[in-house]
Amino acid sequence: MIRSLMKQEVKVNYKLYIVFLSIIAMYAVTLVAMYDPSLKDSLKSLEESMPVVLAAFGMQDMGTTLLDFIITYLYKFVLIVTPFIYSIVMCYRLLAKYVENGSLAYLLNSKHGRTKIVLTQWVNLFLGLVVMISFNTGLMIVCCSMMFKGALDIPRFLILNLGLLVLQLFIAAFCFMFACLFTDVKYSIGCGAGVISLFIIMQMFFSVYDSAKILLYCNPLSLFNPQQLINGNIVSVISLVVLLGLTAIFLIIGLLGFRRKDLAL
């Protein structure tokens, strides 16, 4: 890992970190503040009035507990899409931008090789996601403790966020792989963003139409099932292991591709 490059990236991108952490904080605090078991009937009426829209975003059933409520309104769409957007932006800033403007030549002319550069940029992306998920986890625990003391099942909530982190690392590695493989930005960023966006749309489509169940088996995002995960379903745990395996495969492919590709510097 190249420490000087790590420090430089943090210095350049810290404002972006603050923006995404602020978005996460806004959603987390607002959602917890909205929780009120007495409003269950009102929310059910809302679901009945807009079943297709709420189903598309996975917001159909608030459940019976605070954790169920949080999963329904935060972990089925918002916390899937927000870190995904962060990963896309950072893949451009950490790698694709350097290739596009030719400044990667300065890094390669130093004593550091391609492997070190790619691994350093991946660690930067990895740590950003860890901080984001950890920040959300800690903030929600504090908010729930202050507003609804004892209502949140913290051990299961921690397991939920571990699963979310695994999913986001999978998404980040997939996007990072294309940033390593292609020189043209429309492919290096567009392929990763396009395919993951398609997976998200497929998931939304399946949520609305049960007849589209086949899409569930074609979508790696379905390997993250929040409700089954907190219930201790062994299949959901195995699914996370699969996601970790795919993450490693994407990183290896990206690294090998970056080492071999002609950068035309």
Rank of each mutant, 00 (worst) to 15 (best):
Y106Q: 08
M132T: 13
L67D: 06
A179T: 03
T137F: 09
C91I: 05
I88M: 11
F199M: 09
L263T: 10
V195W: 03
T82W: 07
S197G: 11
I201W: 11
F178H: 14
L127C: 13
V237T: 04
F157N: 08
L221I: 15
A179N: 07
C175K: 02
F182T: 09
V242Q: 06
Q227Y: 04
A56R: 09
I133P: 04
Y106N: 06
L125W: 02
Y35F: 15
L127T: 11
V242T: 08
I24G: 12
C143R: 03
V130G: 04
M204Y: 01
S197A: 14
W122H: 08
V53G: 04
E100C: 10
V166R: 05
T115N: 08
L54N: 12
I238K: 10
V81T: 00
S110E: 07
E48V: 01
F148I: 05
T30S: 15
Y73N: 11
I252H: 09
S222P: 11
S38R: 13
L74I: 04
L54P: 05
L5D: 10
V32Q: 07
F199R: 00
L119R: 14
W122L: 06
V99I: 10
K76I: 03
L263F: 09
L129N: 15
A173V: 01
Y35H: 11
S188W: 09
A25Q: 02
I133V: 15
E48N: 15
L169P: 06
N13C: 04
K44P: 02
L263C: 12
T115H: 05
K186Q: 10
L229I: 05
C191W: 13
L169E: 05
I159E: 03
K213N: 13
I85W: 02
Y17T: 14
G194R: 09
A33N: 09
L46H: 14
T137I: 02
V142C: 03
V89T: 05
V237Y: 02
H112K: 12
L104V: 14
